[in-house]
Amino acid sequence: MEVEITLGGVARPGTARKNKTGTWKVYMPVVDHKKCILCMRCLHNCPEPCITSVDDKIEIDLDYCKGCGICSSVCPVDAIDMVYEEK
């Protein structure tokens, strides 16, 4: 495989979008929407931030979620499970 690299690791703005940091995770968050009370604690605590609320439903962007598990641990109703990700 050939890779192209710049002299001195120079990068243009916005390249972080192309770098899918979601590949780093070992465990991925899975939301049980029946249990979810839409308190938004996970959304506010996500350090990335990968969690959004769309049409009264929590959505997690797994392309950038690093699997830290903070969302799961702050959830008051245990609606988020951290599941081993098969790659």
Partner: peptide, 13 residues
Amino acid sequence: DPLTFGALATPEY
């Protein structure tokens, strides 16, 4: 024309 020098290089690079 802002640039990042010495940007993150993961184990792949």
